[in-house]
Design a protein around this nucleic acid. Sequence first.
DNA 1: GCAACTTACGTACAGGCAGTATGTATGTCA
DNA 2: TGACATACATACTGCCTGTACGTAAGTTGC
Lengths: 198, 198
Amino acid sequence: MSNGSRQAQRSEATRRKLVDAGRRLFADRGFAAVGTEELVREAGVTRGALYHQFADKADLLEAIVDEIDGELTQAIAAGAMTDATGPVEALRAGAVAFLEAVTAPDVHRIVLVDALPVLGWERWRAIGLRHGLGLIEAALAGGMEAGAIRRAPTRPLAHVLLGALDEAALYVVAAEDQQTARAEMLEVLDGLLEGLRA
Amino acid sequence: MSNGSRQAQRSEATRRKLVDAGRRLFADRGFAAVGTEELVREAGVTRGALYHQFADKADLLEAIVDEIDGELTQAIAAGAMTDATGPVEALRAGAVAFLEAVTAPDVHRIVLVDALPVLGWERWRAIGLRHGLGLIEAALAGGMEAGAIRRAPTRPLAHVLLGALDEAALYVVAAEDQQTARAEMLEVLDGLLEGLRA
DNA sequence: GCAACTTACGTACAGGCAGTATGTATGTCA
DNA sequence: TGACATACATACTGCCTGTACGTAAGTTGC
């Protein structure tokens, strides 16, 4: 792959425009409700560019989900979870940060609502494994190794925890009073996480 | 509502045909991949009947989800959970039954994958509250009243548990070896539920 | 038991949208 | 600098949902 070539730069620039436009529009009105015509208009390119850069509309969504998930996980891992006193505390800090960040429409609408049926569970899971799911699984494995967390199959446990977090996020976003909803959810999640201790 | 009138019977019959056909086809290939033409052909009616009985395609999906969710919850509540020795045991029995029943494609594909973005979270949640979510919440409230479960906001807790169950179901269905996946998931869920005790 | 009305369904049409085929310009490399 | 590849532009096709309108079956007041 010719790296910094002018063509590669141009490609990358249009990909950026399409991904950015997709994030905005899909987050606002949902994947299905945004036509490719409006999408490329917003991005300042043509449909030809879209279908040159991506196989189809779902492929663009996959790129968007991957980016959002990556940013989110990166921020949580590098931020809240780093200076935790132990594995359980790290997971709790991650949950707090997650519920905080998920208020942004990008995350919940695109990643939690629209992505699953469009990409199918396999592709969706594959993205998660590279990011949030992987982070949780690593934290769990580390905690078990250190004797802080009761031993259990890490992969299924990570799935279950992420499922709980996702539903918690949707609950908070849809709540009329997000403040109390978030507080209640953190209390609940805290209880679950405490139950993980060895 | 004229009850047993011949018209009402006819209406109910075509509704049944449409709902049944939808369950089969949507479960197999997903909501978006099945056109209304094929749907009514399978049901043995015409598009006119479809759009007379339901406002739109999503409205049909809502009826299907409501029916599936109702059947599932009814079966679990009347079956596994009745002869449990306590609230936590009842929840565990419910989880077992749920993971067992969810292997049928109706449930996971339609209810867990397709329904959310089509109906939106509000409508989706409203259905759940009438069935599975309501069942869990009632079990939790009863357990807290009886002192068997640690006190916590029941509604958010029910959401989180159902989210965990849903993700567990998807995990099991997608697994190559469903037997071990289900066993692992039950072990994990059991741990979470044990953590609920007072 | 018939006429006015409603319900249930059939059919043809219109708009929109995803994906493709084909053309063109720009960049790359021997 | 000429052959080739990449990146994009545009026109077109098929599909699919929802709607408008027509018709037949059923129901109710008198």
